[in-house]
Design a protein around this nucleic acid. Structure first.
Lengths: 212, 212
DNA sequence: ACCTGAACACCGTTCAAGT
DNA sequence: ACCTGAACACCGTTCAAGT
């Protein structure tokens, strides 16, 4: 039974979901495929090349069916949510994405659409590109932390209580008060709060809302 | 010649600067210290524990000599810059910090100071905590990308030209135009642009600039 | 063209035994 | 208390040889 490149890739993604990024191993992948551990190297030059293919595959279709007539802020927020969902769809997806250098095909499509939306907000080329970066760092950072907290050793103590125990009310009164008022760490509401911050900052940093 | 915990820690930081996070190895560290590779385990329970100590050491003094009378936005920006400088001071510092769960002593001091400043901007406990997270994700994400680009294989092709070559002007016109207008990738000016975005978004998301 | 089998040069971690 | 020496159970990668 012959191996295809697609088969190696999709099995790798399965293994990632099962065991996480740390335990994703060329040998484990080979075992899962039922081949010897040198076999995968015929299809992917290196583990790095495989990881890049996996990262780009996660972002497949990220710019499909965008509404070009929606207002710029809705498009920016929509793209941010699409990236977030793509990263959260697979275990350690955000960290996988963050560990790679940017220019993968689907990531470029995402960047193009984001910059286009920001140009419509009246930003210069430079500001649009830099703002796209800022939004992307936020999305990836947020998703990475969310997945990191979810994947912790958890010795009977979830991330929230570990954090609560580390905070001394006298040394960190504001942090302590905040923790008492924050229901769950991260999640959609938390994400939207920060995203709104960025989007609200855009008109203040741009000229008017006309093109060019 | 006896080993101290501090000696192991500071040598580990030296090795990190020399070889980067990927090549930072318990065995390499031991060799550098002139001991057998089991020796370090008497001082640090695991590599993870050592990495946490390294990350927290990077942030030493991050809240020293803050001006409590400065306006809130200057304090927020100041703390963001301090975190940025701390992360950039050591090779792969941002990725080291990002790979760890939050509650380290110096990181908590940073969080406390950030939330305090945001409370002075008129934010609720919840909003202040979430905004502090957003700023931190941005700072860490930006620094991580900056260090990632700096530490690439560089086969005669720096990160910028690799990106330029990957962009097709027909498929990604906005991206292509933006690249032509962006002098250097990242750096201080790039960082300040995104930070201003976040800080500008704060008043729009908060009530008035009075406490409670 | 595609895979096996085996090797090479590494890892983190543990632990009896020494001092 | 602190370290050695040696082992255990792994890694990613390469490559002659097979089919």
């Amino acid at each position: 039974m012959r191996l295809s490149k697609e088969q190696v890739l999709s099995t790798a993604v399965d293994v990632l979901d099962e065991v996480g990024l740390e335990q994703l191993t060329m040998r484990r992948l080979s075992a899962r495929l039922g081949v010897q551990n040198g076999a995968t190297y015929w299809h992917f030059r290196s583990k790095q090349a495989l990881l890049e293919a996996m990262a780009d595959a996660m972002l497949a279709g990220i710019v499909d069916d965008l509404d070009p007539h929606a207002p710029w802020h809705a498009r920016v927020a929509g793209l941010a949510h699409r990236l977030r969902r793509a990263l959260l769809a697979r275990r350690d997806g955000a960290r996988l994405f963050a560990s790679l250098f940017f220019p993968l095909p689907n990531a470029l499509d995402y960047g193009e659409a984001m910059i286009a939306a920001l140009r419509d907000a009246g930003m210069s080329h430079r500001d649009a590109a830099w703002t796209a970066d800022a939004v992307t760092y936020y999305v990836v950072g947020h998703a990475a932390e969310e997945q990191l907290a979810a994947g912790l050793p958890d010795d009977g103590a979830p991330a929230t209580t570990r954090l609560t125990r580390a905070v001394d009310p006298h040394r960190h009164p504001h942090l302590h008060a905040a923790l008492a008022h924050v229901p769950a760490p991260h999640g959609e509401e938390h994400f939207d709060h920060g995203l709104r911050l960025l989007v609200n900052g855009i008109p203040a940093s741009a000229g008017t809302a006309s093109a060019m």
